[in-house]
Computed example of a mutant assay.
Amino acid sequence: MGIILVVGSVLLAKTFILIGRPINSHVDQQAINQIDAVPTLFLPGYFGNRFSFGFLLRRLVKKYGANKSLVIIVDRHGKLRLIGDFVDYRCLIQVIFQDKRSRPKQQAEWLMRICDLLANRGVSTINFVGHSMGCITIFWFLTHHQHDIPVKVNRVITIAGPFNDSEIAKNTRDVEDYPIDSTGPQQKTAVYRALAKKVTAMPRGIKFLNIAGTISSSQQNDGQVSLTSAFSLRYLLRDPIIYYRELVIRGSRATHRLLHENRVVDAHIAKFIWNV
């Protein structure tokens, strides 16, 4: 038993290291169209780490010929440490915040530093994929730093975003599920109201794919975020006319923590970003 535990611990430690490192497809391809040439940044949720998107990124490399060529680690003071470099073809960038308790407002400021770095490296256009609180960080970034963003944001994928929850970094006793009608949520939380304040300032032309999960027909949530909260995003985006699509993932692998480990989600990410 002791030997098994030691071997298991070694394998876990090795996986932990590798999942936060670049991994390329080794497919010798040049971007033949503008879509393939746009790098995509992945932002984890609250208390997220390298595991948050690590396995998903590895699957995108293996199945879709993408390249997780760069990992950007943001320390507690906002200093950036880069592991790897850019590639021209389907570049995936994993963002890891060392301060696991940092909130969207702070993360959005650090995201500006990342975009400045990318612009200085010759990047002109980017995509975003966020999970849970990472969705809020992206939205805050787009609405509060819109005049300073040095790159164009092309496509955004939000996964299980708590857009109408009262707390974005802590689970409430019950999953918050406020009815929505043609005008939006019937009860708007402080989070929703804060996001709505500057939504008209969001850069134009961004395409959104909003993904949410339901565990069963009787449980219209992913265990932490309800469909109504996640899909409240559609009302935030309605004023600035923006391309917007919704996707519901159902079943046992549609829980909050498993949505980014769902192969159906993988396929829709690839389709939305690269049109494959």
Rank of each mutant, 00 (worst) to 15 (best):
G20Q: 03
L92M: 01
I159D: 05
Y235R: 03
R250A: 13
R253E: 06
F51K: 01
D148Q: 13
F51R: 04
F128V: 04
Q106K: 06
E246C: 05
K100I: 01
I96G: 04
R234D: 06
H144L: 13
Y235W: 10
F86N: 09
L80E: 09
Q220K: 15
Q98P: 08
A13Q: 12
G184V: 12
N221D: 10
K14G: 12
D174R: 06
K207H: 13
Q187P: 01
T40N: 01
L237Y: 08
T40R: 10
D88V: 13
S102F: 05
Q106V: 12
I35T: 14
P150T: 13
G251M: 15
A37I: 00
T40G: 00
G65A: 07
F139V: 10
F86S: 10
T214H: 05
I159L: 14
L117S: 02
V191G: 01
L60N: 02
V7T: 15
R76M: 07
G8R: 09
G84V: 00
N210F: 13
I126C: 02
S52E: 07
I269N: 06
S9Y: 07
G84K: 11
R113G: 08
I114Y: 00
A267H: 12
T183G: 03
E167D: 12
S69T: 05
V248Y: 04
L195V: 05
I269K: 09
G78N: 13
I138N: 04
I215P: 01
D177F: 08
E176F: 10
H145F: 14
S218R: 11
I93K: 00
I215L: 14
A194L: 15
V27A: 07
S252P: 08
K68H: 07
T255V: 02
A13F: 04
F208W: 11
V248L: 13
A201E: 14
R204N: 14
Q29C: 01
P203H: 04
N275W: 03
P22E: 05
G45A: 04
N49Q: 02
V87R: 03
Q224C: 10
F272T: 14
P44L: 04
R90W: 04
T183H: 10
Q220L: 13
F53H: 10
I136D: 02
F139Q: 09
I114S: 03
S229N: 02
V151T: 14
I157S: 10
G213L: 03
A119W: 01
I168G: 04
L233N: 00
V191K: 00
A13W: 12
R173G: 04
D222F: 04
P240E: 12
A270M: 15
H147S: 15
T228L: 07
R250E: 13
R238S: 11
L237E: 08
N33G: 11
G205P: 03
I17E: 06
Q30T: 02
Q30S: 08
Q146V: 14
Q107S: 10
I138W: 08
R101C: 05
R257Y: 12
S252C: 11
K63L: 13
K198L: 12
T143R: 03
I4P: 03
R193A: 12
I73R: 08
F163V: 01
V61Y: 01
I136G: 05
